[in-house]
Design a protein around this nucleic acid. Structure first.
Lengths: 211, 211, 211, 211
DNA sequence: CATGAATGAGCATTCATTCAT
DNA sequence: GATGAATGAATGCTCATTCAT
């Protein structure tokens, strides 16, 4: 109740509030539409149709579908990056980093998709991080850099950190997607499984020797 | 009558041949177009423009762009499945299965994308297997079944084969995509890395004890 | 009767005929629309609305409104240029050139606008030559060249042929527009008046001495 | 209250002044925009964008783009009419009238376009008089009346003053447009040429006998 | 069957205009 | 009066699809 956002401002006073609400409405509609149709197939009209707004209004807020997508992706990334920073801050060895990073990612996935899941989303939403997003790519790059730091000097020359990153990311992605399809959402299990598999696998390459 | 003009004018006489040729021409054009523009952005027009055929002709062979895509995906799957069958036939233990399966997949990826790569494709093509395809999903399912067979009785009750499959597939996908971007195409390296990582990782769960 | 052009080809046989008919239909509609709204204000949709064709069909024939306009202008110019060539061929002195050129222009205007006039056009049509058209500009340029040829050596150095051309063209345009508004269409009167005024006026500059 | 903030903040107190200033700002913006884009292509948005005013404010002053254009045209006419009145006042014979009228027109053209020319306008501006404006039509009508007065009784019955007016106006328009394209702006030359041509031309019809 | 022109729905986008603030 | 966001009609254009030839 206290939380409904009316468009014309029930009386709390501001024009700006309506603007923010509209922007939010568009973003949320876009989130749903992208989930349903995919970013490519979605049209601006699909999005506005999902809102209470008029066609032209969209363009008061975004220049194109891509811009909304970007905004959405940025939002996600912005929400994820501090978590990753925390992970980094509290991880002084490879194992800890991996475990907390996986946990951070799976929790993030859960949190991002919670609304969609509770509102009985179709079957799979997978909003939140879409790893192909340019902004998200930088996150992957951060992770790669982190891994490199941990692995430098440790790892036999033959290994390249890009393969390692790819493996880590692949596991996270696929397992994450899978986790989202099951009820109840088992963050602990996914974290446990991913971490152990990856760490033990890596151990076979002669690392990580705890420092 | 006997002399109807076939498309290729080869004069070998069969009407059916012309039909097959047309179908093939469309499929190949689609492959190129999908590689260039992505499946979503490509239009039927883009495809027919790439052939020597008329617009209407397309609809004698396919009902929509999606159907062509499906056909293309099926083709891929059809080409991949026998390889997987071979793998299965010659693998009597878990380790062998994993190693040969990964190799089969990376080789398949290389083979499928070779033409595109040689013709200097934009940057990433990734035709061939697109894991999200329904048909491809059945391949993944086959793999899951294979893994289950190997793991049955082996694995501590806590593990679930779906997580394991997800991890295996995630590694394959991400590593495969990555491998395709590098020159020279390093099938051996990818195979080696993926297999070892996965196998050692799995070993940590108390398996696979060679039987 | 013998002259009706049916779209689906009543039986006279050709697909090509329908195409030509459609193109013609668009051109004629455009002519009307341009006359009614002006080239700038007219929209592609205004034009197709005036035809029996569908929206998309327009683009099978023209890429844009401008292209139709160009086609229309070219048509006019193409029809006018041979007349001007005749004038040139049969005029060996300045006076003859001026008289026959003015006549040619006014006759051309009458012929171009005859259909519109007979069909009870709004009030002023003025299709036909729109002097600002790029193609028409080249006609003006031809005239300037013709005048220059006649005037070379004749005219006192102070005069510049561009002023002269401008005056000749201004008289033609304004008088022509005016002539079109009156009934009956008085080609003779306009020719007589324009020629005499211009020639006597020019005489004051010390030419043209008949050679 | 007495201290309402005026737009210019000049503080001189009059509300009316702010209004007039706004109106003026719109008019000047429109003048620029029309010069840049042409009247047809210009949009109300283009105009307000050029001012410091808000979109809605436009409609407090004008109902549409056309109305602004009209106002602009009227302004021009209003500025031109007194000049024409002067011409009339000091011309007691046909020749003087023609010469001073042409001069007045060419000077007017120069004065109106001076700002645009100095600010390095695209290539042709031709603001000021656009002869098709309804208001301008009345100016032409005045001229016609003037001519008629001078010609009454003078001219052989066969001539009609409308042809004569058309010729005079045609010369003025075309020559004026042309003059504006040349640097330096040669008002004298244009006046001289137009007057002489027209007067000598008219003389051929048996007039004007100086009275 | 192949052809390719016609169709009309659909899309992105712009714009004039209104109206709550 | 000024403001500027919202509106929705209109526009140029593309596309999948149909169908007469």
């Amino acid at each position: 109740m206290a939380d409904t956002i009316t468009k014309q401002g029930a009386g709390d006073g501001k024009r700006a509030q309506a603007k923010a609400a509209n922007r939010q409405e568009i973003l949320e509609a876009a989130r749903r539409v992208f989930a349903r149709l995919g970013v490519e197939s979605a049209t601006v009209r699909d999005i506005i149709r999902e809102t209470s707004l008029a066609a032209g209004t969209f363009y008061n807020y975004f220049k194109s579908k891509e811009e909304v997508f970007q905004a959405l992706a940025d939002e996600s990334t912005i929400r994820f990056r501090p978590r990753l920073a925390d992970v980094r801050a509290q991880s002084f060895d490879f194992e800890t980093y991996i475990r907390t990073a996986y946990r951070a990612y799976f929790e993030f996935l859960r949190d991002e998709n919670e609304p969609a899941i509770e509102s009985g989303a179709p079957h799979m939403t997978l909003i939140g991080v879409r790893i192909d997003t340019p902004e998200m790519a930088t996150v992957v790059e951060e992770i790669r850099a982190d891994l490199e730091k941990f692995l430098s000097g440790e790892v036999s020359e033959a290994l390249d950190t890009e393969y390692i990153t790819a493996a880590a990311v692949g596991i996270a992605r696929e397992l994450g997607d899978y986790m989202l399809k099951r009820r109840p959402l088992d963050v602990d299990g996914a974290t446990q499984f991913a971490s152990t598999l990856f760490l033990k696998g890596m151990a076979s390459f002669g690392m990580p020797r705890k420092t």
